[in-house]
């Protein structure tokens, strides 16, 4: 039986959303290719997760070992390469997440298989995998292709495919013996650490004024801060601002920061890298100010303003003050 293989991703005893997204994508591919949808679950004492997965896969391969309790790219690589070598799936789907980024390249190298990373959508034929990805910071779409005749691997961007939500399958759970996991002790999981979050909680704000690279200089941050204050809002930012240490991590919106859903989100000089957009796309209304009319932020914004944010900020601030005084 032909097979589509999906790696189930979980952390701290919970299946991550990307798993359901990949199963949804895997279901489509499996139907088209008349293949079985199989998911592999490496872990330790995760039988309940296997049962959950069986509602959306034909087969769950449960690989339990104490050494698989936390993610380790070396251990996972051995589990997957053993399974892929014996089962020969047409394609293996892995999340383009902190886990998948650590795992997929080494796995592909070990198997000598083509790997398409950070894919938004996939099309599969007998011979070829075609994937759509974004390049140049989301400003260009690229269609890439690789052979799938001897198998291939794709990592899928989180938050792009909608999960099915309901039960689609009544799959079997099969317990698989873990491979020897030799040599994995050269890489050791120690612990999880929460990034230092203190002071502000941007997830509670009704209105967020968020700044990006366009703010240009640390000296300019008070201008945005004053605007946020005038609007009764909270100041947030995209990754480059935290990288430059201009604002603490607690202010960061996006994949590695916080996910926010304020009533209004005003993005100032944020180009709209995907990692930022995932963290704010469900805001009530999104207003983006950017000099570049092709900035990807305008794809997700409800309203766009193409101008210099330094012209715009003081005018909006005065307008807000005026309105609030009139109350």
């Amino acid at each position: 039986m032909r097979e589509i293989l999906v790696l189930a991703e979980h952390r701290k005893g919970v299946l991550r959303d990307i798993t359901w997204e990949m199963l949804s994508l895997g279901k489509e591919l499996a139907e088209k290719m008349e293949a079985q949808l199989t998911t592999v679950l490496p872990g330790y004492e995760v039988k309940s997760l296997a049962d959950e997965l069986s509602t959306q896969a034909d087969l769950v391969l449960l690989v339990e070992d104490e050494r698989l309790q936390n993610f380790s790219s070396m251990a996972y690589q051995q589990v997957l390469s053993t399974l892929i070598t014996t089962r020969k799936p047409i394609i293996t789907l892995i999340g383009h997440t902190a886990c998948g980024i650590d795992l997929a390249p080494g796995l592909a190298a070990a198997l000598g298989m083509p790997l398409a990373t950070d894919c938004l959508s996939l099309t599969l034929t007998e011979k070829e995998l075609t994937a759509v990805r974004q390049i140049y910071g989301g400003k260009v779409n690229a269609e890439v292709a690789c052979s799938c005749e001897k198998g291939c691997i794709a990592t899928i961007r989180a938050g792009v495919v909608s999960p099915w939500g309901e039960e689609t399958r009544k799959g079997k759970v099969e317990v698989i013996q873990s491979p020897s996991l030799e040599g994995i002790s050269r890489q050791r999981f120690i612990e999880y650490v929460e990034a230092a979050i203190g002071g502000v909680d941007i997830t509670q704000a009704d209105i967020i004024v968020a700044i990006g690279r366009g703010i240009q200089d640390k000296e300019n941050i008070p201008l945005a801060e004053e605007l946020a204050k005038a609007l009764g809002g909270t100041l947030a930012c995209s990754r480059p601002i935290v990288d430059k240490k201009w604002l603490p991590k607690a202010h960061q919106v996006g994949t590695s920061g916080k996910t926010v859903r304020p009533k209004a989100y005003i993005a100032l000089g944020i180009s709209g890298a995907f990692q930022h957009i995932v963290g704010m796309k469900d805001s009530g209304v999104i207003i983006a100010v950017n000099k570049d009319p092709r900035a990807p932020i305008f794809e997700v914004a409800d309203y766009g303003i193409v101008c210099d944010l330094f012209d715009f900020m003081p005018v909006l601030k005065e307008k807000a003050k005026e309105l609030l005084q009139r109350r």
């Binding site: 400003k139 779409n141 690229a142 305008f298 766009g304 303003i305």
Partner: peptide
Amino acid sequence: SKVKIKGLSLPPSGKGAEIL
């Protein structure tokens, strides 16, 4: 190269946003 670029395209400008 195992993965080859077939073609590039530009996403439409400001697809979602109403430009003020």
